[in-house]
Design a protein around this nucleic acid. Structure first.
Lengths: 368, 368
DNA sequence: GATGCCAGTGAATCGACAG
DNA sequence: GCTGTCGATTCACTGGCAT
């Protein structure tokens, strides 16, 4: 199994931009080989006539040839095909992010569910500086929608909860993200000074996605690579990327852009990790190592209960026997209990959570 | 034509709550007779086991029978049928609002487009006080999605641009609406003191929708009437409503609720605007947005300490890791520390407080 | 009356792993 | 694949009651 994956990974065209149709190119890649896919598929915009600002200057709308689709049926077929190809190359625990607007996201979201992907969250990118609705006939279209989905219901995709919490000043990251659109220095211009790609995404958006849902060294594929924002941020953050882009002019823009980017140093790539990633320490080890002794009393954090430690690392309190978790849960009448934070021992009259002792052991383990 | 509509309108059961299946009830109404439809269909949540909060209390989940569907196919069939019935009774320039979450909104949105509705905007209801993700395994599901669509591409639905602009402190109303969920006094309780309906929507949401997309005297139909928020707000705002609700207990709740409501006088229809607090800017956003980079050094205001920035917006200094506030406090041996004023970055040899960057972001946010 | 503390709760697809 | 066990995990707001 491990060997197969290594072999598959060895065949991947890492940190390259593939030329051609994304469905064909994805079909040529080995299955179960990619950790994350970020996709910004063409929008099914149906602009009737040109859109003008109040001063009659023309708005540079997204009206390139590749963005026109005859009907929902054609668009749906296209969506189903690229999603199927994308799903094949994803690792079993891989995930996908798709971004879209109301023109296409309901089609894409349905196709994604039908293909077997399992939605984890949808995320709203709130633009801090959206284009106003010049004619005053609608609400300002101030957001785009992203869908984050695992390859299947059974998938266990990477989610760096603590890192995203840190990015959000210590409170859970929500499903609505306020970020500016890509303009100013970041917006790539061509030789004529015009924007090199009509829908260049901001790097801040990809930063949050990549920090939140990949680990360093992961492979991120973008089937609609465009100006290469995915590749640029992946490189900065020490991830590998695979880009697919049909249009030569965009490939050229992206290649030049990514060449000029340097990876952040290793230490700053580390992000806050979850306790779940820490090695498990059985409570019995505290007894074996003499940090606590059989016969010692433990006291509940709320002071209402006490229990005695037995030689095998179980507790006994009245008629309750079992692990620190089981006895804690039973005494509290709770469905479950984290014994590590529930129980305290006394040292010079002071109650100290037994988790302090576990931390000590873990620090020793790290030192060795 | 005008005569036909008058005749049709005369047959409408205005300001009543119809009992029965919404598809049958809508099919019994005359075509082209309703100005607006607001629909809050079942979300098809697929919940597995129980969920407990970290304090071990059990979450009261939406596990009612009316939200159970066997498959996407069954749910899609249901959506297509009620949308078809809804579209028939809409006036040619009528419009529909549908609300949903990621579980169902992509299905509903696709069905709506397939039925011939024309999406005008999608609107994100950002909850100011959503339920957190208790297990820390996903993003906080902090929003729901609403789709606003005309009966057809040719429809010219009512849009009270100026009224919404006034509601929004004089700037164009955006497609993301920050409103609290329905609780406190507004949340209707049954005789046992329990919530009378599991998914009662806040009146503020309906207020904005009705002010923005109907005129006084319009007829608003809600095929999933529930606790009757649509009817309550319609009555307050001088619109007529038609409710359809299958469950007797909900009809009873709604009837009693609406009976106690008085129509606003004309002058008081414009509600007071909410004051905007200074938005919170997480330090991580400076990193995501490239204003500071992972690996960059920060220096303390007093010049005694330095720290390095990591990709998730935490700092690292010797053995200290954590937020700008935590690391600052640790280095100073202080109980707390305002990292925004404590840390500086260097630009052309000059030390500049990072708070300058936050001010820049806030200025941008205010400008839009 | 003002303030502070505690308890309660909201449309939720809410584990990982050994045996 | 199933079962049992370990043990990680929450934000904003409201209302009641004590101080």
């Amino acid at each position: 199994m491990a060997k197969t994956q290594t072999k598959a990974a060895a065949k991947l065209p890492l940190n390259e931009i593939l030329s051609g149709d994304c469905i064909e190119e994805m079909n040529a890649l080995p299955e179960n080989s990619v950790d994350l896919i970020f996709a910004d598929p063409p929008y099914n915009l149906q602009l009737k006539g040109d859109l003008h600002r109040p001063d009659n200057s023309k708005v540079d709308a997204v009206d390139d040839d590749w963005d026109q689709f005859d009907s929902f049926a054609v668009y749906d077929k296209f969506s189903r095909e690229w999603l199927r190809a994308a799903r094949r190359i994803l690792k079993p625990n891989g995930a996908i992010w798709v971004i879209g607007s109301y023109h296409n996201i309901y089609r894409v979201g349905s196709a994604l569910q039908d293909a077997g992907f399992w939605i984890l969250n949808d995320v709203v990118w709130r633009k801090s500086n959206p284009m106003p609705n010049f004619r005053g006939v609608r609400l300002t279209n101030a957001h785009e929608t992203m869908i984050w989905a695992g390859k299947s219901e059974k998938s266990k995709p990477t989610f760096n909860y603590e890192a995203l919490k840190a990015l959000n000043d210590g409170v859970q990251m929500r499903s609505d993200w306020l970020l500016p659109i890509c303009n100013g220095n970041e917006r790539i211009k061509d030789d004529n000074g015009e924007k090199a790609h009509p829908t260049q995404k901001p790097e801040s958006l990809l930063h949050r996605i990549i920090v939140g849902s990949t680990n360093a060294g992961d492979v991120i594929l973008d089937p609609f690579f465009g100006s290469g924002t995915t590749g640029a941020v992946a490189k900065k953050l020490g991830r590998d990327f695979i880009g697919i882009e049909r249009e030569a002019k965009y490939r050229k823009v992206a290649e030049k852009r990514i060449k000029g980017i340097r990876r952040f140093d290793k230490e700053s790539l580390l992000v806050s990790t979850s306790k779940r990633a820490e090695p498990r320490v059985p409570f019995g080890q505290l007894v074996e190592r003499g940090m606590l002794k059989p016969g010692d009393q433990l006291f509940s954090l709320n002071g209402r209960h006490s229990a005695k430690i037995r030689a095998d690392g179980t507790l006994i309190a009245h008629d309750q026997r079992g692990s620190i978790h089981q006895v804690g849960a039973a005494l509290e009448g709770a469905p479950s209990c984290n014994g590590w934070t529930y129980w305290c021992f006394k040292k010079r009259g002071e109650a100290i959570p037994i988790d302090m002792l576990r931390k000590k052991i873990r620090a020793e383990m790290r030192a060795n």
